[in-house]
Write a protein that binds this DNA or RNA. Structure first.
Length: 732
DNA sequence: GATTCCC
């Protein structure tokens, strides 16, 4: 049932190894790659008709692969190489490391010459099994503008060959080329090195600030997202910190939680804890009469179904409503806290200095709001998009709390972690660690990453030595937990980043099991840009009278993001995409499936536009490396699945293209939130076909985004404008 | 049906 129960290895094999991995020798008998041996007819058994004694030079049945071929096959796992079929094992043009650039260059030049204008035409290539058969059919009669352009762009792809290590034997020989060793993750032992972690790519909050929305112009928002548009997710609106106000006029924390029972006094929460809590209904309206003036989910027509799945039992609906109401009651705006420094909020000097080093000189609203309650030990629900300072909002007070709890005690070797941070993707876990590790190290605490796709050894080694904060993804964490290599029983603070996503099918149960493994009564912090009632399941079980905060956003329209929807003919899609990505700024392209993401990256690359892919069928090294390539600017185009939709933090992406429209408004918001940062202009272009107009309109309504729909043909100036204009906007 | 998430 859960999506996470896919058969092991299923996906890689299914999608990307049809030719080499999935076939049996029978299937492949016609002509093996790398071999000229004809198909072998007849029986191998002397007892059967047609038996033919093996000829001396016939390939032995078993020795199907030479070592070299095997290497090639491994390489094929890297996906891109495999489309070429038997002709070669590794495509030289993508695997420069092994073959040398000359070969590759020559090849690409050839291609330009003999391929008239079919820049994105893959029709001449053997179809890959894994690719959706897309019609590139009519490419030939097209103008292919990309082709023209290629001339003046000396193939940027060449440049980037250098930094691609031989992609084949991925991990072993991977010459630490990028200077960033993949090991980054394992690296815990030598710890301090937070390796690539904090790299400057997090210049940090500089941009963050930009996304900080103004807050009080809005009515206190209910926690329930259903009746309101998730705006925080949008970037940008920001530079207006100016209108950020007003925090003063708010009864700053009037809802002073101080009168609430300190955490310790609270009944131990185990699962029964729910029982000791006052039932929602009979709880006294807490100071927040606010509750009443706020729109209730159920008030508005068409609102109640925002996040609801179409069919929900009345029972469930009821439950959700209750939860919702409760959350609403405690919702306060982040701006309740008047301007205060991090030190004022209770953070120690070392941490304050570390924050300054990260570019966080003074708290952003979400931080100003959440630091104090977190230090008080309260459970917190907070909505604030990545980049609004969320990571520091939970990271800094978490470190401070651990420090206080350990005051006077010596850090023991082999100590169990005191805090846990869960993220939905490995990349996000890495990114969080880049920030949290800096803060933790400033006071002598250690963090370690625990996520899949890399060998366990280093992670386990680090845990054995003893760490204070574990940051990771659910799968590996649960795995180590089950193996007895990770002890969460001493975890006093657990954070769920992208909490709503972590409550989706496939994530929820592992997350619940992990949280149950933390200390009884441990503090829970749920953060997300689109926090909604989807977290109800966790709130019910694990949170006690949570404080709810959010960073109010401006209207969707007021941001620095220009949203455009291009209504296109499906047959033009490949070329339109090609012409859109043929530009100078950083471009992030979202595709619905891994195979399509891979295919698009390859297509762009072959058209002379250096591009890499990011999706779950790549090994972790490639994932990390490809993302880093975009961050560092070695490549300007990244084609990703929704693995990159949330949390990925590259500050200067100025164009987000949705090659496939998202199905959910939340996805739209998260994807588009990858651009428009740092006060820059950003554009989000979504390609749809005519049939999808209605669905798209509805989705944009839910997201409260206004975007013109424009019928677009292949040679339209609009495409030039969308691709080219970015350049001027950014540089101006 | 797709996307994350242990080997």
């Amino acid at each position: 049932m859960p999506k996470n129960k896919k058969p092991a290895g299923g996906r890689a094999a299914k999608n990307f190894e049809p030719r080499y991995g999935a076939k049996t020798s029978f299937q492949d008998r016609k002509r093996r790659p790398g071999t000229d041996a004809p198909a072998k007819p007849g029986s191998k058994s002397p007892n059967h008709r047609g038996y033919r004694a093996p000829e001396a030079d016939a390939a032995p049945a078993k020795a199907r692969w030479t070592a070299q071929e095997r290497a090639g096959r491994d390489e094929a796992r890297g996906i891109r190489s495999q489309a070429r079929g038997g002709e070669r094992f590794a495509r030289p043009d993508r695997d420069a490391g092994a073959r040398g650039r000359d070969d590759r260059d020559a090849r690409s030049f050839d291609r330009r010459d003999d391929r008239p204008a079919r820049s994105f035409d893959r029709s001449d290539r053997p179809a890959r099994g894994d690719r959706p058969a897309r019609s590139f059919d009519r490419r030939d009669d097209r103008p292919a503008r990309s082709f023209d352009r290629r001339d003046d762009r000396p193939a940027r792809s060449f440049d980037r060959r250098d930094d691609r290590p031989a992609r084949s034997f991925d991990r072993s020989d991977r010459p630490a080329r990028d200077d960033r060793p993949a090991r980054s993750f394992d690296r815990r032992d030598d710890r301090p090195a937070r390796s690539f972690d904090r790299r400057d790519d997090r210049p940090a909050r500089s941009f963050d600030r930009s996304d900080r929305p103004a807050r009080d112009d809005r009515p206190a928002r209910s926690f329930d997202r259903s009746d309101r548009p998730p705006r925080d997710d949008r970037p940008a609106r920001s530079f207006d910190r100016s209108d950020r106000p007003a925090r003063d006029d708010r009864p700053a924390r009037s809802f002073d939680r101080s009168d609430r029972p300190a955490r310790d006094d609270r009944p131990a929460r185990s699962f029964d804890r729910r029982d000791d809590r006052p039932a929602r209904d009979d709880r006294p309206a807490r100071s927040f009469e606010r509750r009443d003036d706020r729109p209730r989910r159920t008030d508005g027509p068409n609102r109640s179904d925002w996040n609801a799945s179409p069919a929900r039992s009345a029972e469930h609906e009821q439950r959700v409503d209750v939860v919702h109401e409760r959350l609403q009651a405690e919702a306060v705006d982040a701006a309740t806290v008047a301007e205060a420094s991090f030190a004022d909020l209770g953070l120690g000097d070392n941490i304050v200095r570390a924050l300054a080093g990260l570019g966080a000189a003074s708290p952003f609203p979400i931080q100003a709001a959440t630091v104090t309650p977190i230090l008080e030990g309260r459970d917190v629900l907070a909505r604030g998009r990545t980049g609004s300072g969320k990571t520091i909002a939970f990271g800094a007070p978490m470190v401070e709390s651990i420090l206080r709890a350990q005051a006077g005690k010596k850090r023991e070797f082999g100590r169990a972690p005191k805090a846990l941070i869960l993220a939905p993707t490995r990349e996000l876990a890495l990114q969080i660690d880049r920030t949290v590790q800096v803060i933790a190290r400033s006071v002598g605490l250690f963090t370690t990453q625990v996520y899949g796709g890399v060998p366990q050894a280093r992670q386990v080694g680090a845990l054995k030595k003893g760490v204070d904060i574990v940051i990771g993804t659910p799968g590996r964490i649960e795995d180590l937990l089950n193996q007895g290599k990770l002890d969460l029983s001493d975890v006093q603070i657990a954070v769920l980043d992208e909490a709503d996503h972590m409550c989706e099918l496939g994530f929820l149960e592992p997350v619940q099991r992990i949280l149950r493994a933390t200390a009884d009564g441990s503090q829970k912090l749920l953060f997300s840009a689109t926090l909604d009632r989807e977290v109800a399941a966790l709130v019910d079980e694990f949170l006690v009278e949570p404080a709810v905060y959010e960073v109010a956003g401006e209207d969707q329209d007021s941001g620095t993001i220009d949203h455009r929807v291009l209504v296109i003919d499906h047959r033009d899609k490949a070329e339109i995409l090609g012409s859109l990505v043929d530009r100078d700024g950083k471009t992030l392209v979202f595709a619905r499936t891994r195979a399509y993401a891979e295919m698009l990256a390859e297509q762009f690359d072959e058209a002379g536009i250096a591009a890499v892919a990011l999706h779950g069928d790549l090994n972790q090294q490639k994932r990390t490396r490809n993302l880093e390539k975009l961050t560092s600017g070695r490549v300007n185009v990244l084609v990703a699945t929704d693995v990159a939709a949330r949390g990925i933090h590259v500050d200067d992406i100025d164009l987000v293209i949705q090659a496939d429209a998202p199905d959910e408004y939340k996805t739209y918001l998260h994807r588009s939130g990858r651009t428009g940062r740092a006060g820059r202009r950003g554009t989000v272009v979504t390609l749809i076909t005519r049939q999808r107009r209605r669905r798209m309109t509805e989705l944009l309504d839910r997201a409260e985004i206004e975007a013109p729909f424009e019928e677009t043909q292949l040679g339209d100036d609009l495409l030039e404008e969308l691709a080219g204009r970015q350049l001027f906007d950014v540089t101006s």
